[in-house]
Amino acid sequence: MSSARQQLAGPQVLEADGIRIGFGERQVLGSIYLRVQTGQIVGLLGRNGSGKSVLLQAIFGARAVPDASVRVNGQRVVPAFRQPGLLNYLPQEPLLPPSLTLARAAKLLGVDIGAATARFPELRPQFGRRLGELSGGSARLVQALLLLHADTAFSLFDEPFSGVMPVHVETLAEEMQRLKQRKGLLITDHRYAEVLPICDVVYLLHQGRLLTLEGDVREQLRDYGYLAS
């Protein structure tokens, strides 16, 4: 599914529902319906342990959920990660194998690493290094950039700003806004002050339910106990 084909086909709509996940007695996710469209940045907020990462993994297809339905333009795509060009996923933990240099990882992902890091010139000398040789923030940043610039219709990012220094967070957020013209982004991150301004839609995972927040989002986040009142 190349960019050219996506443009010809118009906007892509990723929908997920029927995702119910529990750990032992505890139901983490109830009946969830989530929608992301190319051209959108969708924010997913929630308290620790509310199931944000689990939800992203279930949509990505890495976590098998019996009744889960993940669809793109109405067509079922389970597991979604098997479909070339459809979506990618940045997990909280390191993405790249420890033996792989950044340049080689970019090549395998089909990304022009020079273009992907064009706004971060300090990353250039690091292309020949392995992920473990970078600082935590630089490693996080470069992984987010590689997936952001990969030719997929959607990107699911779990804590992309974690450990990244503020000046890079701002530039990364600008990159996300620029690249949303050709893809849909689903982002979960506790740095809500950086996430909220770039989001077109904000969801809150609360007690196993996915709530769409409209209007004064910050006030609702306070009402649901995500922000201090």
Binding site: G61, P91, E93, P97, L100
Partner: peptide
């Protein structure tokens, strides 16, 4: 346990 993420991203 987290070794598969990169490969999942390669489908």
């Amino acid at each position: 346990p987290g070794q598969y993420w990169f490969y999942f991203n390669l489908h």
